[in-house]
Protein backbone atom coordinates (compact mmCIF):
# COMPACT_ATOMS: atom_id res chain seq x y z
CA UNK A 1 0.00 0.00 0.00
CA UNK A 2 1.52 3.33 -1.04
CA UNK A 3 2.10 6.08 1.48
CA UNK A 4 -0.55 8.25 -0.09
CA UNK A 5 -2.98 5.37 -0.01
CA UNK A 6 -2.45 5.06 3.75
CA UNK A 7 -3.44 8.68 4.16
CA UNK A 8 -6.42 8.33 1.85
CA UNK A 9 -7.65 5.18 3.62
CA UNK A 10 -7.43 6.80 7.03
CA UNK A 11 -9.20 9.90 5.77
CA UNK A 12 -11.91 7.75 4.30
CA UNK A 13 -12.28 5.70 7.45
CA UNK A 14 -12.64 8.68 9.76
CA UNK A 15 -14.83 10.55 7.32
CA UNK A 16 -17.21 7.61 7.47
CA UNK A 17 -16.95 7.63 11.23
CA UNK A 18 -18.27 11.20 11.15
CA UNK A 19 -15.18 13.35 11.29
CA UNK A 20 -14.53 16.61 9.54
CA UNK A 21 -11.48 16.12 7.33
CA UNK A 22 -9.26 19.06 8.17
CA UNK A 23 -6.05 20.41 6.64
CA UNK A 24 -2.58 21.20 8.01
CA UNK A 25 -2.12 24.55 9.66
CA UNK A 26 0.59 26.00 7.46
CA UNK A 27 3.11 27.01 10.11
CA UNK A 28 6.00 25.04 11.49
CA UNK A 29 4.60 22.94 14.32
CA UNK A 30 6.06 20.10 16.33
CA UNK A 31 2.88 18.05 16.23
CA UNK A 32 -0.71 17.96 15.06
CA UNK A 33 -1.72 19.06 18.53
CA UNK A 34 -0.51 22.56 17.75
CA UNK A 35 -2.93 22.93 14.87
CA UNK A 36 -5.87 25.07 16.08
CA UNK A 37 -8.08 22.16 14.95
CA UNK A 38 -6.81 20.62 18.16
CA UNK A 39 -5.29 23.30 20.36
CA UNK A 40 -8.35 25.58 20.19
CA UNK A 41 -11.19 23.20 19.50
CA UNK A 42 -10.60 20.90 22.43
CA UNK A 43 -11.27 23.89 24.69
CA UNK A 44 -14.80 24.59 25.88
CA UNK A 45 -18.02 22.59 25.65
CA UNK A 46 -18.52 22.37 21.87
CA UNK A 47 -18.31 18.96 20.21
CA UNK A 48 -15.57 18.51 17.61
CA UNK A 49 -14.61 15.50 15.54
CA UNK A 50 -11.80 16.03 13.11
CA UNK A 51 -9.09 14.13 11.25
CA UNK A 52 -6.17 15.66 9.39
CA UNK A 53 -2.57 15.22 8.33
CA UNK A 54 -0.04 17.50 10.00
CA UNK A 55 3.52 17.96 8.74
CA UNK A 56 5.48 17.96 11.97
CA UNK A 57 8.91 19.31 12.60
CA UNK A 58 11.33 18.05 15.21
CA UNK A 59 14.68 19.67 14.46
CA UNK A 60 16.59 17.49 16.95
CA UNK A 61 15.44 14.35 15.14
CA UNK A 62 17.15 15.27 11.87
CA UNK A 63 19.76 12.76 10.71
CA UNK A 64 20.95 14.21 7.39
CA UNK A 65 18.64 11.70 5.66
CA UNK A 66 21.07 8.97 6.69
CA UNK A 67 19.07 7.27 9.40
CA UNK A 68 16.50 4.77 8.13
CA UNK A 69 13.89 5.81 10.74
CA UNK A 70 14.42 9.40 11.72
CA UNK A 71 13.39 12.63 10.12
CA UNK A 72 13.20 16.20 11.30
CA UNK A 73 10.09 16.64 9.17
CA UNK A 74 7.48 13.94 9.04
CA UNK A 75 3.72 13.48 8.99
CA UNK A 76 1.19 12.77 11.66
CA UNK A 77 -2.34 11.66 11.05
CA UNK A 78 -4.33 13.25 13.81
CA UNK A 79 -7.84 12.42 15.01
CA UNK A 80 -9.75 14.35 17.66
CA UNK A 81 -12.96 12.94 19.09
CA UNK A 82 -14.81 15.25 21.44
CA UNK A 83 -16.57 14.15 23.54
CA UNK A 84 -15.29 10.60 24.09
CA UNK A 85 -17.56 8.34 21.98
CA UNK A 86 -16.72 5.30 24.15
CA UNK A 87 -16.06 2.88 21.28
CA UNK A 88 -13.03 4.57 19.77
CA UNK A 89 -10.48 1.82 20.44
CA UNK A 90 -12.56 -0.67 18.45
CA UNK A 91 -12.87 1.97 15.74
CA UNK A 92 -9.13 2.52 15.80
CA UNK A 93 -8.44 -1.21 15.45
CA UNK A 94 -10.89 -1.32 12.55
CA UNK A 95 -9.04 1.54 10.87
CA UNK A 96 -5.86 -0.56 11.12
CA UNK A 97 -7.76 -3.40 9.51
CA UNK A 98 -8.60 -1.10 6.60
CA UNK A 99 -4.86 -0.62 6.22
CA UNK A 100 -4.39 -4.37 6.14
CA UNK A 101 -3.25 -4.83 9.73
CA UNK A 102 -5.38 -7.50 11.30
CA UNK A 103 -5.25 -7.41 15.06
CA UNK A 104 -5.58 -11.17 15.41
CA UNK A 105 -2.35 -11.74 13.51
CA UNK A 106 -0.27 -9.33 15.57
CA UNK A 107 0.73 -8.39 19.05
CA UNK A 108 -1.10 -5.11 19.51
CA UNK A 109 -0.72 -3.47 22.86
CA UNK A 110 -1.64 -0.29 24.63
CA UNK A 111 1.30 0.66 26.80
CA UNK A 112 1.04 3.50 29.28
CA UNK A 113 2.41 6.70 27.89
CA UNK A 114 1.36 9.96 29.34
CA UNK A 115 1.70 12.96 27.18
CA UNK A 116 2.73 16.41 28.18
CA UNK A 117 3.62 19.48 26.22
CA UNK A 118 5.14 21.96 28.62
CA UNK A 119 5.33 24.69 26.01
CA UNK A 120 1.57 24.81 25.51
CA UNK A 121 0.55 23.89 29.06
CA UNK A 122 -1.10 20.67 27.95
CA UNK A 123 -1.19 17.15 29.28
CA UNK A 124 -3.18 13.98 29.08
CA UNK A 125 -3.09 10.31 29.96
CA UNK A 126 -3.01 7.53 27.44
CA UNK A 127 -0.87 5.00 25.67
CA UNK A 128 1.48 4.36 22.88
CA UNK A 129 0.11 1.63 20.69
CA UNK A 130 2.58 -1.11 19.88
CA UNK A 131 2.37 -3.22 16.78
CA UNK A 132 4.74 -6.15 17.36
CA UNK A 133 6.90 -3.92 19.54
CA UNK A 134 6.83 -0.91 17.24
CA UNK A 135 5.13 2.25 18.36
CA UNK A 136 2.65 3.19 15.66
CA UNK A 137 0.23 5.49 17.43
CA UNK A 138 -0.03 7.90 20.34
CA UNK A 139 -3.32 7.74 22.13
CA UNK A 140 -4.27 10.43 24.62
CA UNK A 141 -7.19 11.56 26.71
CA UNK A 142 -6.55 15.30 26.87
CA UNK A 143 -7.05 16.69 30.33
CA UNK A 144 -5.64 20.17 30.03
CA UNK A 145 -4.64 22.49 27.23
CA UNK A 146 -3.28 26.00 27.72
CA UNK A 147 -3.52 25.32 31.43
CA UNK A 148 -7.32 25.00 31.14
CA UNK A 149 -9.14 21.90 32.40
CA UNK A 150 -10.99 20.36 29.48
CA UNK A 151 -14.64 19.55 29.84
CA UNK A 152 -15.49 17.41 28.05
CA UNK A 153 -12.09 15.76 27.69
CA UNK A 154 -11.11 14.86 24.12
CA UNK A 155 -9.66 11.69 22.70
CA UNK A 156 -6.59 12.26 20.54
CA UNK A 157 -5.31 9.55 18.22
CA UNK A 158 -2.05 10.29 16.45
CA UNK A 159 -0.93 7.78 13.85
CA UNK A 160 2.73 7.62 12.84
CA UNK A 161 1.92 7.09 9.21
CA UNK A 162 5.47 6.62 7.90
CA UNK A 163 6.03 3.82 10.40
CA UNK A 164 2.79 2.15 9.48
CA UNK A 165 3.50 2.44 5.78
CA UNK A 166 7.02 1.06 6.25
CA UNK A 167 5.55 -1.87 8.05
CA UNK A 168 3.02 -2.48 5.32
CA UNK A 169 5.54 -2.16 2.52
CA UNK A 170 8.13 -4.14 4.44
CA UNK A 171 10.87 -1.58 3.86
CA UNK A 172 13.46 -0.81 6.48
CA UNK A 173 14.50 2.61 5.22
CA UNK A 174 12.01 5.43 5.22
CA UNK A 175 13.53 6.78 2.01
CA UNK A 176 12.50 3.61 0.20
CA UNK A 177 8.90 4.06 1.15
CA UNK A 178 6.74 4.19 -1.97
CA UNK A 179 4.79 7.40 -1.90
CA UNK A 180 3.18 6.49 -5.23
CA UNK A 181 3.85 3.47 -7.39
CA UNK A 182 6.90 5.19 -8.90
CA UNK A 183 8.00 7.90 -6.53
CA UNK A 184 9.58 7.24 -3.16
CA UNK A 185 9.58 9.23 0.04
CA UNK A 186 13.29 9.75 -0.51
CA UNK A 187 12.67 11.21 -3.95
CA UNK A 188 10.50 13.83 -2.33
CA UNK A 189 12.33 14.56 0.91
CA UNK A 190 15.92 13.33 0.87
CA UNK A 191 17.58 16.60 -0.04
CA UNK A 192 15.12 18.57 2.01
CA UNK A 193 16.06 16.48 5.06
CA UNK A 194 19.74 16.85 4.45
CA UNK A 195 19.60 20.62 4.04
CA UNK A 196 17.45 21.10 7.11
CA UNK A 197 19.68 18.85 9.18
CA UNK A 198 22.72 20.90 8.23
CA UNK A 199 20.82 24.04 9.10
CA UNK A 200 19.44 22.80 12.40
CA UNK A 201 22.67 21.31 13.68
CA UNK A 202 25.37 23.46 12.13
CA UNK A 203 24.30 26.54 10.29
CA UNK A 204 21.54 28.12 12.31
CA UNK A 205 22.76 31.42 13.70
CA UNK A 206 22.37 31.12 17.44
CA UNK A 207 22.55 34.80 18.30
CA UNK A 208 20.06 35.73 15.64
CA UNK A 209 17.66 32.96 16.56
CA UNK A 210 17.82 33.95 20.21
CA UNK A 211 17.00 37.47 19.10
CA UNK A 212 14.13 36.14 16.98
CA UNK A 213 12.78 34.18 19.89
CA UNK A 214 12.64 37.38 21.89
CA UNK A 215 11.08 39.34 19.02
CA UNK A 216 8.39 36.70 18.46
CA UNK A 217 7.70 36.77 22.15
CA UNK A 218 7.31 40.54 22.14
CA UNK A 219 4.99 40.35 19.16
CA UNK A 220 2.91 37.67 20.86
CA UNK A 221 2.67 39.67 24.07
CA UNK A 222 1.66 42.83 22.25
CA UNK A 223 -1.00 40.99 20.25
CA UNK A 224 -2.38 39.35 23.35
CA UNK A 225 -2.55 42.68 25.12
CA UNK A 226 -4.53 44.02 22.21
CA UNK A 227 -6.86 41.05 22.30
CA UNK A 228 -5.75 39.47 19.00
CA UNK A 229 -5.26 35.96 20.29
CA UNK A 230 -5.49 34.19 16.91
CA UNK A 231 -2.45 35.94 15.40
CA UNK A 232 -0.79 35.89 18.82
CA UNK A 233 -1.01 32.11 18.70
CA UNK A 234 0.94 32.07 15.44
CA UNK A 235 3.78 33.88 17.16
CA UNK A 236 3.74 31.45 20.05
CA UNK A 237 4.16 28.66 17.48
CA UNK A 238 7.03 30.55 15.88
CA UNK A 239 8.65 30.89 19.30
CA UNK A 240 8.27 27.20 19.81
CA UNK A 241 9.86 26.28 16.49
CA UNK A 242 12.69 28.78 16.97
CA UNK A 243 13.33 27.30 20.38
CA UNK A 244 13.41 23.81 18.89
CA UNK A 245 16.02 24.85 16.32
CA UNK A 246 18.13 26.39 19.08
CA UNK A 247 17.73 23.18 20.98
CA UNK A 248 18.93 21.11 18.03
CA UNK A 249 21.84 23.50 17.67
CA UNK A 250 22.78 22.44 21.19
CA UNK A 251 22.45 25.83 22.77
CA UNK A 252 19.74 25.15 25.32
CA UNK A 253 20.63 23.91 28.80
CA UNK A 254 18.34 21.92 31.02
CA UNK A 255 17.53 24.95 33.08
CA UNK A 256 17.14 27.34 30.20
CA UNK A 257 14.71 24.90 28.65
CA UNK A 258 12.45 24.95 31.67
CA UNK A 259 12.46 28.73 31.78
CA UNK A 260 11.62 29.08 28.09
CA UNK A 261 8.84 26.53 28.34
CA UNK A 262 7.40 28.60 31.12
CA UNK A 263 7.46 31.76 29.00
CA UNK A 264 5.69 30.02 26.11
CA UNK A 265 3.23 28.34 28.43
CA UNK A 266 2.16 31.65 29.93
CA UNK A 267 1.36 32.96 26.47
CA UNK A 268 -0.41 29.78 25.34
CA UNK A 269 -2.56 30.07 28.43
CA UNK A 270 -3.62 33.59 27.51
CA UNK A 271 -4.43 32.48 23.97
CA UNK A 272 -6.57 29.67 25.36
CA UNK A 273 -8.50 32.07 27.56
CA UNK A 274 -8.93 34.40 24.60
CA UNK A 275 -10.46 31.61 22.53
CA UNK A 276 -12.76 30.51 25.36
CA UNK A 277 -14.01 34.06 25.84
CA UNK A 278 -14.69 34.44 22.12
CA UNK A 279 -16.67 31.19 21.94
CA UNK A 280 -18.62 32.19 24.98
CA UNK A 281 -19.42 35.55 23.44
CA UNK A 282 -20.85 33.94 20.29
CA UNK A 283 -22.69 31.40 22.47
CA UNK A 284 -20.89 28.22 21.39
CA UNK A 285 -22.50 27.86 17.95
CA UNK A 286 -21.34 24.27 17.46
CA UNK A 287 -23.41 23.12 20.43
CA UNK A 288 -26.50 23.70 18.30
CA UNK A 289 -25.32 21.68 15.31
CA UNK A 290 -25.88 18.01 15.43
Amino acid sequence: MTFQKVVLKLQKFWEKYGCLIGQPYGLEVGAGTSNPHTFMRVLGPEPWNVAYVEPSRRPVDGRYAENPNRLQHYFQFQVILKPDPGNHIEAYLKSLRDLGIKAEKHDIRFVEDNWESPSIGAWGLGWEVWLDGMEITQYTYFQQVGGVDLDPPSVEITYGIERIAMYLQNVSDIKDLKWTKDITYGDVYKHFEYAHSVYNFEAANIDRLQEMFKLYEQEAIELINKGFFWPAYDYVLKMSHTFNVLDARGSVGVNERAANFKRMRELAKKVAYGYLAEREKIEHPLLKKK
Binding site: R70, H106, I108, D132, G133, Y167
Partner: peptide, 28 residues
Protein backbone atom coordinates in the same frame (compact mmCIF):
# COMPACT_ATOMS: atom_id res chain seq x y z
CA UNK B 1 12.72 -12.29 24.89
CA UNK B 2 9.50 -10.52 24.05
CA UNK B 3 6.44 -11.11 26.19
CA UNK B 4 3.59 -10.76 23.71
CA UNK B 5 -0.12 -10.75 24.30
CA UNK B 6 -1.13 -13.54 22.01
CA UNK B 7 -1.60 -17.13 21.09
CA UNK B 8 1.03 -19.25 19.45
CA UNK B 9 0.04 -19.22 15.84
CA UNK B 10 1.61 -15.95 14.69
CA UNK B 11 4.92 -16.14 16.47
CA UNK B 12 6.94 -15.41 13.35
CA UNK B 13 5.18 -12.17 12.55
CA UNK B 14 5.68 -11.03 16.12
CA UNK B 15 9.34 -12.07 16.09
CA UNK B 16 10.09 -10.25 12.84
CA UNK B 17 8.41 -7.08 13.97
CA UNK B 18 10.19 -6.90 17.29
CA UNK B 19 13.59 -7.71 15.79
CA UNK B 20 13.19 -4.88 13.33
CA UNK B 21 12.38 -2.44 16.10
CA UNK B 22 15.36 -3.41 18.18
CA UNK B 23 17.81 -3.37 15.35
CA UNK B 24 16.63 0.11 14.35
CA UNK B 25 17.14 1.34 17.91
CA UNK B 26 20.50 -0.34 18.37
CA UNK B 27 21.51 0.95 14.99
CA UNK B 28 20.85 4.45 16.26
Amino acid sequence: IVVANHLKENTNIIKDGNEKVVSARLND
